[in-house]
Amino acid sequence: MKINEAAEAAGLSRRAIKYYEEQGLVHAAKDKNGYRNYTEEDIGRLKEISAYRKLGIGIRDIGILLSGTKPELLEQIYEEKKKLHQEDENTLEALRQFISDKNTDAFCRSVDYKSVADAMQEMFPGFFGYFSCSIFCRTFRLA
């Protein structure tokens, strides 16, 4: 099937499919006329990539997962996300307590700014994340 049909079948945009090809995650065969021809296997792979992206997994890790060379990676990602979720729950609980008692000392003790900086760096990889975290950490004297 052609890219438009593949995009519809996988629930992705044409641009997303081309990006995944550029990143080496999908390799569609080409017809004699040069058009890409996607198989059902390719569609399954695109759906798997889409599921990983919806989970917030990066392209590099998706490549590793698809290659099957590190099967424990998905479990590691799960544990990291579970830890971040718990930290978010703790922060929300601290905020709820702060709303009721306005105790800034207790709030500041219960919120871990270092984990916030780590989360920022994960959300904004590369230079922008590094730059943002360096400003954040200096502001709160973490560096």
Rank of each mutant, 00 (worst) to 15 (best):
M120W: 00
K114L: 12
N103T: 08
M120Y: 01
K114Q: 12
T139D: 03
A106S: 15
S134P: 00
N103Q: 05
Q121H: 10
T104Y: 14
A117M: 05
S115Q: 10
C137E: 07
C133F: 01
N103K: 09
S132K: 08
K102T: 14
N103R: 10
M120S: 04
F107V: 07
S110Y: 02
I135H: 05
M123N: 08
G129L: 03
C133K: 02
Y113F: 13
F136L: 03
F127D: 14
S132I: 07
M123S: 09
G129E: 02
C137S: 12
F107D: 03
S110A: 15
G126D: 09
D101Q: 14
D118Y: 01
C133I: 01
R141M: 07
V111G: 01
D118E: 11
T104L: 12
C133M: 03
F128K: 15
Q121L: 03
E122R: 07
S110C: 15
S115W: 02
C137W: 01
D118A: 04
T104N: 03
R109N: 15
T139C: 07
I135L: 12
I135Y: 05
R138Y: 06
F127H: 13
C108K: 13
C108D: 07
V111S: 01
C137D: 04
R109F: 09
S100G: 14
D118N: 04
D105I: 07
A106N: 13
D105E: 15
F140G: 00
G126P: 14
M120A: 11
F131H: 13
E122V: 02
A117F: 01
A106V: 09
F131W: 10
R109P: 08
Y113D: 06
K114W: 05
I135P: 01
F107C: 06
F127W: 14
S100V: 13
I135E: 05
K114E: 09
V111Y: 00
A106Q: 14
D112H: 09
C137Y: 01
A119S: 12
D112N: 15
F140Q: 00
F131E: 14
G126L: 11
A117K: 02
D118S: 03
C133W: 00
C133A: 15
R141I: 04
V116D: 00
N103I: 09
D105F: 08
I135T: 06
K102W: 12
A106K: 15
E122N: 10
S132V: 06
Q121D: 06
C137A: 12
C133Q: 02
